[in-house]
Write a protein that binds this DNA or RNA. Structure first.
Length: 426
RNA sequence: GGAGGAAUGGCAGAGUGGUCGAAUGCGGCGGUCUUGAAAACCGUUGUUCGCGCGAGCGGACCGGGGGUUCGAAUCCCUCUUCCUCCGCCA
């Protein structure tokens, strides 16, 4: 979330920039500032009364010790009225803080200056594209049919075991999945990322820290018995490693990577968008996360974009990179690049990665800071993350684009992971 | 799952109702000494909110939340986590 100081000092800018994100509640901003004024007044009053109580208590202590219990009793009488008054102020102060917190979390992050205006993905800005769209042979199929034809994916079995959106991978389909995970992780490790294998369930604090809670509660599977959430992305556990942490600047940038399954309820999705692997409830993803110094976060973002792009180049997939417009930008992001790959069998662009800079928005929720040398107060760090990459749609695109009448050709970078004799899936 | 014990500053560890935001040691930082370093000695060393132009002042924080009390690290309730023992288990 934005800090209250920032909102106070940049009221006009906040209101104006949030319009780009289609957040048109200037009255909420003003309500926050007003309530913060209340809070300050209440705190001054509360602190004064607390100081008075502390003083009196101290004196009462002395009186008891010096053998003057009558005087002490007399003084005790006086504390009761102050105490009653103090209780009121303390409650009001707490209410003000509660209000402020609940309102602050409703304010999205401010988009970066370069974020184009717009409401839908049609307004996203094409940054660059690469790869060649393949020309498929007569009778080419979409991946959900290829999956059945080559015994790689069994959607019906997933329905039987769990429900819709839980595909079962088998044989070389499962192997291809594992090959991609290994390849992605190795590529990330080579670029200096440290591999993590985090828990797949997180508590409420973690969900709050990265911004999934309280707003996007409906997107996560919730284990109510233990009040835990299945992670929608490795971003949640990996970024929360640094919740309530003050880092030394020498430790920055921190670069982490993790493979995890991801769980998303995807409530309200339907139709051809969810066909096959296009949108599922459980999928595998390799994630990269960076924690860095505020002055470095945009160069880190570029670095991450180039890094992810290289994966797609190596896989030989036609891709394009778009910068999200204000309306398409997520609640917590300041700047996001989406990667899409072309799936020839269904003539569709599929989103396979989203690389974002959250600036200090998550860090403020997480209380993730670093200490500037010589400075007394710690400052908020910047957090970034990106998919490198989300598996199902990559698999869909690989299957569709590399299909031939004789089978599906596996990209060369995966050969060593797929094992000998599996260069073509037949 | 059952029975017991514990949670204090970066770490270790005192403190069991009153000048305790907290002894002491280690670590960190600054200094004296030294050609330099070590040792020794001296000083310093948490987070956070508010008021003030400022020097500074006040408040909160001893795992989280609530309570008792004029006053809580200390007593009570509750949650969480860790340790020991028993049970179960990949």
């Amino acid at each position: 979330m934005l800090t209250i100081q920032f909102i106070r000092e940049n009221r006009e800018r906040v209101i104006k920039r949030l319009e780009v994100k289609r957040f048109k509640q200037p009255e909420l901003i003003d309500r926050i500032i007003e309530r913060d004024n209340d809070r300050r007044t209440l705190q001054v009053k509360t602190n004064e009364l607390q100081a008075e109580m502390n003083q009196l208590s101290k004196e009462i202590g002395f009186l008891f010790k010096s053998g003057e219990p009558e005087k002490a009793k007399e003084m005790k009488e006086r504390t009761s009225s102050i105490k009653a008054e103090l209780e009121t102020f303390e409650r009001d102060l707490q209410d003000a803080n509660t209000d402020l917190n609940s309102w602050l979390v409703q304010v999205p992050n401010i988009p970066h200056q370069t974020v184009p205006p717009g409401n839908t993905e049609a307004d996203n800005k094409l940054i660059r594209e690469g790869g060649r769209v393949p020309e498929l042979h007569e009778g080419a199929l979409p991946h959900w049919e290829l999956g059945t034809k080559y015994n790689l994916i069994d959607f019906d079995l997933g329905v039987k075991i769990t429900g819709g959106g839980f595909p079962v991978f088998r044989g070389l389909g499962a192997r291809l999945q594992r090959a991609l995970i290994s390849y992605f992780l190795d590529h990330n490790i080579q670029a200096g990322y440290e591999e993590y294998l985090p828990p797949l369930l997180v508590n409420e604090e973690s969900g709050f820290g990265t911004g999934q809670l309280p707003d996007k509660e409906g997107q996560m599977y919730h284990v109510t018995e233990d009040n835990l959430y299945l992670i929608p992305t490795a971003e949640v556990p990996i970024t929360n490693i640094y919740r309530d942490v003050i880092l030394n600047p020498e430790e920055l940038p921190i670069k982490n990577t993790a493979y995890t399954p991801c769980f998303r309820r995807e409530a309200g999705s339907y139709g051809k968008d969810v066909r096959g692997l296009n949108r599922v409830h459980q999928f595998d993803k390799v994630e990269i996360v960076q924690i860095c110094h505020p002055t470095q976060s945009y160069s880190a973002l570029e670095e991450m974009v180039n890094h992810v792009e290289q994966l797609l180049i190596n896989l030989g997939l036609p891709y394009r990179i778009v910068q999200l417009c204000g309306g398409d930008l997520s609640f917590t992001s300041a700047l996001t690049y989406d990667f899409e790959v072309y799936a020839a069998g269904q003539d569709k662009w599929l989103e396979v990665s989203s690389v974002s800079n959250f600036e200090s928005y998550q860090a403020n929720r997480l209380k993730l800071r670093y200490r500037e040398p010589g400075k007394k107060r710690p400052r908020l760090a910047h957090t970034l993350n990106g998919s490198s990459l989300a598996l199902p749609r990559i698999i869909a695109a690989l299957m569709e684009n590399f299909q031939t009448p004789d089978g599906i050709k596996v990209p060369e970078v995966l050969h060593s992971y797929m094992g000998p004799g599996n260069e073509i899936i037949k």
